[in-house]
Design a protein around this nucleic acid. Structure first.
Lengths: 343, 343
DNA sequence: TTAAGTTGGTATAACGTTATACCTTACGTC
DNA sequence: GACGTAAGGTATAACGTTATACCAACTTAA
């Protein structure tokens, strides 16, 4: 009760060898029912918990998965974690999450920490400017790894992501279909791959429909930043009647800003968000958005890493899940719109 | 480059003994500058990362802290994690987070997992019905542990929490001061300690001011639940003109519900939230709330566990941080209020 | 010239498991 | 009564580090 027991203690108390006790604990080998009971009871009585370090070192196995994600505080990410955590638990793994902050140096340290503690696998949102050496590190240690959202610039790594270009294309088409002619893209900051893909889908539809040059405006992914960005964007481009957003937080921020400015989201400026976070449905007005189920995405992600651990030699898989347009209250035809017509 | 290197490989390549290589890697012992450089370069060239399991097992030390929290997806919790993570990083520790879901069985498994992997310390929000055996488990393994928010029913464990009763008392006084006579408490579900404390502060002020019996209404801690609860509460007690909430999510939900019902939050029913999450300031109307800085709370929590690891024999500390009343737009005198007067 | 450091290293035994090979004893079979 | 085999267990060597004790070769001091 008072000192941390090891297997040796349990074995001695139960009157068997350490090897036998070990076999009982793990349910392997041929052990009589009588001995089994006795060992298990002693273990329970002493509050014995096996030392995972020793076990893992000897057996070469581990039941811990690491997830290095750039921002736990983002509700979308939090749901992803929840989904991944659930699936992994049902497969007997444990997920531990690290808050990585989109910083390549910090990220490197955290990946090293995962390697040091010999995780069975890794879920990972690569930082924007991940250097090649980081990929080399992972390759050297042959750690089953799945990238999430941001694709590694290495083909040999499994990836789970979103059909970004297709999603923003859908969003832009929706806005064009209901009559908008001046559509901007709002959100994200640097030229990261995800954002580029989203801008690409948006710009492609603009080009296809002859709606002029793309207008892209930066913003951090939270509501206050979205508010400020909306104000600035409108000052710079008053002709805009619709915006496609890089995320729901920004979109809701933009919507709030319009209200503060005495305008009506939807009627004055239509807005399409991205993600469909919980707030989207209950915002005023409810947000039209490209919906993804972050929980399911998390499960998918976990599924991929579990498969990879089981079959290390399968070719790397690329899973891109589609987003679904959910029309709510922030997209309506522009005030001056005639009947919606192409060109 | 292709196979996972161990210290032995590095030592052999650098032409030194394993012991020497080990000393170089950790900066201990007396090693000449020349050898040091040589070993470090070889290590870097081979992408060597020490095996933390072996190191920790031999040295008896660990640089990993575990955090078992009931709901990562809650923005307040997410900020706490962020603060704890930052402080621990600056002290050379790594924080890994587990999504525990307020389930005693699941919690037990997760704590065992932390013990198995020999974390240096534990941050922990105990589940509602944590059995005594779980405390025994922790005591047996003498794992430096700090409870957060919910206090363990054991005095020997460090605790970091919030001055709950004082906070809701302040909130209730504020509402009474501006003239409210029918004040309800909304949010939380079971009789957990935190909620009981909050109800106690609320009820105490009601009694002191002769404002009748407490009215307590349940709700899950998210916006949709808050909306529904507000609707139900108002149907059951139409006389109520003010509510003290168990959390901002519920408070914002309640506020949204009032708007849907054609009422005006603040004017028709005053609302005080709890936490001051990011959304509180930008909600319409902005939410009056009892503010706590979750980030600082996280730092505090981490500080306590680090101190405990350094000084295992100090008496257990109880740190309760105060909440601060932030008056925004959801608290105004009731419509029919005469001049605010006591009794 | 010798005793007493100092410098720079090495050999070896742990840490707590698990995998493997091996050893009894009992029992049935021809 | 010799032999095969099954049941139930044990002894022992890893796994990759680090702590400890030790050693050889110089340097310094008296």
């Amino acid at each position: 009760m008072s000192v941390k027991p090891k297997l040796e203690t349990v074995a001695k108390e139960a009157g068997v060898s350490v090897a036998t006790a070990s076999q009982v604990m793990r349910g392997t080998g041929r052990i009589s029912e009588k001995t089994r009971k006795r060992v298990l009871q002693t273990a329970k009585r002493l509050n014995y918990v096996p030392d995972g370090r020793a076990a893992s070192m000897r057996s070469g196995e581990s039941r811990e998965i690491g997830f290095a994600i750039h921002q736990i505080a983002n509700p979308f990410n939090a749901e992803v974690i929840s989904g991944a955590s659930d699936l992994l638990e049902s497969e007997g793994y444990l997920l531990s999450v690290l808050d990585a902050r989109d910083d390549a140096v910090r990220q490197r340290q955290q990946l090293e920490a995962f390697i040091r503690s010999s995780r069975a696998g890794l879920l990972w949102v690569p930082a924007q400017d991940t250097p090649r050496t980081t990929y080399d590190l992972l390759a050297t240690h042959s750690l089953p790894t799945v990238t999430f959202l941001r694709r590694a610039n290495v083909d040999s790594i499994d990836h789970v992501g979103i059909q970004n270009a297709a999603a923003t294309a859908t969003a832009t088409e929706h806005l064009a279909d209901i009559g908008h002619r001046h559509i901007a893209f709002l959100g994200g900051t640097a030229q990261v791959e995800v954002r580029n893909e989203r801008i690409e889908g948006y710009a492609r539809v603009l080009a296809e429909r002859g709606l002029g040059a793309p207008i892209v405006w930066d913003s951090e992914d939270d509501k206050p930043s979205g508010m400020q960005a909306m104000i600035d964007l409108r000052a710079a481009h008053p002709e805009i009647t619709a915006i496609v957003c890089n995320g729901d937080m920004v979109a809701i921020g933009a919507s709030l800003a319009l209200i503060r400015m005495g305008l009506e989201p939807g009627k004055d400026v239509s807005i399409v968000g991205f993600d469909d976070i919980q707030d989207a449905a209950i915002a005023t007005p409810p947000l039209t958005t490209m919906a993804i189920s972050p929980y399911d995405l998390g499960r998918k992600l976990a599924r991929v890493v579990v498969d990879r651990i089981k079959e290390p030699d399968m070719p790397a898989a690329l899973s891109l899940v589609p987003a679904r347009l959910v029309v709510r209250g922030t997209t309506v035809p522009p005030r001056e719109a005639t009947a919606p017509h192409p060109e």
